[in-house]
Every structure is written in C-alpha cells, then in structure tokens.
Simulated assay, not measured.
Amino acid sequence: MSKQYTSSEPSEEQHKTRERIIAAASKVLAEKGYDATTLREISREAQAGPGLVHYYFGGKDALLVEVLQAAGQQFHQRMEHLIQQVPADQSLETFLTQLSERVGQEAEVYRLRYESFSLGLHNPVIAPAVRERLAQRREEIGSVMAKVMENTERTEGIKGPSVDPKILAALLLSLFDGLALQKILDPTFDLDASYQLLERMLRCLFSGHE
C-alpha cells in the first residue's frame, strides 16, 4: 500500500500530487497493460519526477492497487448517490444496469483487476493489498444491497427472508467479475441476458419465494 509521508510538503499539495499520479497511472496502465507499463512512463504522464512516484507509492504493484481502489470508490459513490435518487422500486434494476454497462464503459478497470488477482496469487508483497481491496468491494456491494433490500421490503410490503448482505455481496462480487471476464474475452457473450436472470433471481430471494 502507499507509504506514510513525512515530507514538509503541505498535505493539500501532497493530496493533489498523489491524485495526479494515480490518474496518470490509470491512463497509462489502461492503454498499455500492467507488464508493458513503466514507472517512468507514469511519471512522465503525471508530470512528476520518477522519485516522487517511488516516494508516494513505492512501486508499480502498490500503484496498481491504488488505481483500482480509486476507480472502485468513485463507482461506489456514484451508485450510492444514484440509489438515493431513483424510485425505491427501481433501485435493484438501476444498480444491476449500471454494473452491466460498466463492463463496456470501463473494461480497462476490469482488465487491471484481473491482473491484480494474478499478482496477488504469486506476489506476497501485493497479496495483502489485493485481499484488502476485495474486502472493500464486498463491503461496498453489501452496503448498496442492504439499501436495495430495504427499498424492496418497503415498496412491496413483504418482509423477505433474513439475508446477510455481506454473504450476498461475496456471491455477487464473484458473479460480477466472472460475467465481466466472459464479456471482455468473448464479445458475443450475452451479458444483458445474464443480468436480467440475475435480477429475477434476486427479486425472488428478496420476496421470500423459493
């Protein structure tokens, strides 16, 4: 993960520098992939010295995790805001639609996620960061699904079965990543049909139907 900073550089300036490096890394990594990307290219894109990239992040592995975390948090914030804005009975459909559309709109994010999984399996340095990011994704999905379940119960007037949002989030995370992988590797894969079936399955679960 990123380092703790002891520089005399003002904290606001530190934040801006880190955000600029993360944005540059996201662009370069998306264009060239993890293996072909160098820290020098990232520093050039960020208009920051290579030493600053090392100072703030330590290396490419940690920077990859930071890029994924930033993208995930931005998407989660959009989802939470959207769920609050749409009618309660449309919250599940809206959430799943956004996830499905994200595969096409941000395919590079998914590609980088898969690269991080591979690194996490073989690199003991990056493994804890990947594990932490997975836990954060489960928490993010769980918080949204808890709201969706609350909306479903309120609008339909039916108290469904007790479902642990954290367990549900773990299952959904596997589905989301697996479906995205199939679509990215096989453009003919019917992602929409898969998400439509998933929506029906979740509605049955929330309503208490077997």
Rank of each mutant, 00 (worst) to 15 (best):
G58T: 06
G59C: 06
D61I: 01
L63P: 01
L64H: 06
V65L: 14
E66D: 14
E66V: 13
L68K: 07
L68F: 01
L68M: 09
Q69M: 15
G72F: 03
G72H: 09
Q74S: 08
F75Q: 05
F75Y: 07
Q77R: 12
Q77L: 11
R78S: 08
L82S: 12
I83H: 04
I83D: 03
Q85Y: 03
P87Q: 04
A88W: 01
D89F: 10
D89K: 08
Q90D: 13
E93W: 08
L96M: 06
T97A: 08
T97N: 13
Q98W: 09
L99Q: 11
L99K: 07
E101H: 10
R102Q: 12
V103L: 02
V103S: 05
G104P: 02
E106I: 01
A107F: 04
E108G: 09
E108P: 00
R113Q: 14
S116H: 08
S116N: 06
L119F: 03
L119Q: 07
G120V: 05
G120E: 04
L121A: 14
L121Q: 13
P124I: 08
P124Q: 00
V125K: 14
A127R: 15
A129Y: 14
V130M: 07
V130L: 05
R131W: 13
E132C: 06
E132S: 14
L134H: 07
R137C: 05
R137L: 11
E139V: 10
E140G: 01
I141K: 00
G142L: 03
M145T: 02
M145S: 00
A146E: 09
M149N: 06
E150I: 02
N151A: 10
T155A: 05
T155M: 10
E156I: 15
G157F: 08
G157P: 02
K159S: 13
G160V: 00
G160I: 03
G160L: 02
P161C: 02
S162V: 11
S162M: 13
V163K: 00
D164E: 10
P165L: 02
K166S: 15
A169F: 08
L171M: 15
L172V: 05
L173P: 02
S174G: 15
F176A: 09
D177G: 05
L179P: 00
Q182D: 05
K183L: 06
K183S: 05
D186P: 03
D186E: 14
P187N: 02
F189Y: 11
D190K: 00
D190W: 00
D192G: 03
D192C: 01
A193D: 03
